[in-house]
Structure formats: C-alpha cells, structure tokens
C-alpha cells in the first residue's frame, strides 16, 4: 500500500505547519517519536534555532523596496530515511519548530509505517486551512459593521 496522498503541496504544507496550532504539531510529533523505528532513523541535522528575517516591502508611490523591520523566527531541519524535513515558524517556539520539521520529513517518506501519521498531518493541514478561514470570517464580521459613509456638508 502506498502512502496516502496528502492534498497539499510541500510548499503549502510548510506554510500551514508554520501557523498550525503548536499543541497539535507537538502531539503529532510525539506520536511519530513513539514509532519504534524512528529513533534510529531520525537525525536532527539543524537543531531548532531562533533568528531573524529581514522583511522587505515594496511601497506603492515609487515602487521602491525598503526594509521594514526584522521578524523573529525559529527553524529546524531533520533527516528521516534520507528525506529532509524542514520547518520555520514565527516566534521562538523551538519544540514546535522541530516537531513541524519532523512532520514535514514524515510526509516525504514513502513507507507504510507512516501512512496513518501522514493522514493525520494532512488532516492537521486541512484543519489549519479551516481555522484560518474561520478566524478571517469572524474578524470580518466584527469589523464590517464599522464600514462608514461620511456625508460631506455642501
């Protein structure tokens, strides 16, 4: 049996694992670590590290780029069955960044042992998409009543 297809691309998965609930990521990563074989095959190639990303913005007047500020982020990289897993998240949460890198690697491995986990990671990605959409809608419902049409006095 081949590994179940995860509906999101690797890039999209990285985006979703960057914003997914920390506890959900850590729970899945802990489940992965409980698998018998993984402890021998998992290598943390880059331990979680906190650093900065300089944010560039292109402004609308002259269409020039400038540096707005630096964003704190934490990244990690692992190797599982010779498949690299990588993750980065804004903030300083090292366990979650490492967990996300492990989940990324698991999704890249073609091995039945990981099929169930891969399904769960796919579900987490889909859940994160839903959560994001719901949060946006909830925020819009809060702010849209403040849409205003001022009248000009002639």
């Amino acid at each position: 049996m081949s590994a179940p297809q995860i509906e999101v691309s690797r890039d999209r998965r990285a985006e979703l694992l960057a914003i997914a609930e920390p506890k959900a990521i850590q729970n899945l990563a802990n489940r992965a670590l409980e698998l018998g074989s993984i402890s021998d095959l998992l290598v943390v190639t880059k331990a979680p590290e906190t650093g900065l990303i300089m944010m560039q913005v292109r402004e609308p007047v002259c269409k020039e780029r400038f540096y707005l500020a630096e964003v704190v982020a934490t990244r990690a990289e692992v190797l599982l069955h010779d498949q690299a897993g990588w993750a980065i998240r804004m903030g300083t949460d090292r366990p979650t960044a490492l967990g996300a890198a492990i989940l990324d690697a698991i999704c890249e491995v073609d091995d039945d042992e990981y099929a169930e986990l891969q399904r769960s990671i796919g579900e987490l990605c889909n859940q994160t998409i839903d959560d994001e959409a719901k949060a946006k809608l909830a925020e819009w419902n809060e702010i849209s009543p403040t849409i205003v049409n001022f009248e000009a006095l002639e």
Partner: peptide, 27 residues
C-alpha cells in the same frame, strides 16, 4: 545576538489586508 536567516521576498504593500481603512481626502 541572533543570526539573520534571510531577507524576505518583497511584499507588495498592495497586499495589506485591511482591518481599518480611512480615506480623509475622498468621500
């Protein structure tokens, strides 16, 4: 004390998703 990982891709300011927007000059 922190390393710099990267320069981001340039985000176009037009992508700003508003949660507040006022145009004092134009009704």
């Amino acid at each position: 004390t922190l390393p710099r990982f990267a320069y981001s891709q340039a985000t176009d300011a037009d992508e700003l998703q508003i949660i507040r927007r006022i145009v004092p000059a134009f009704r």
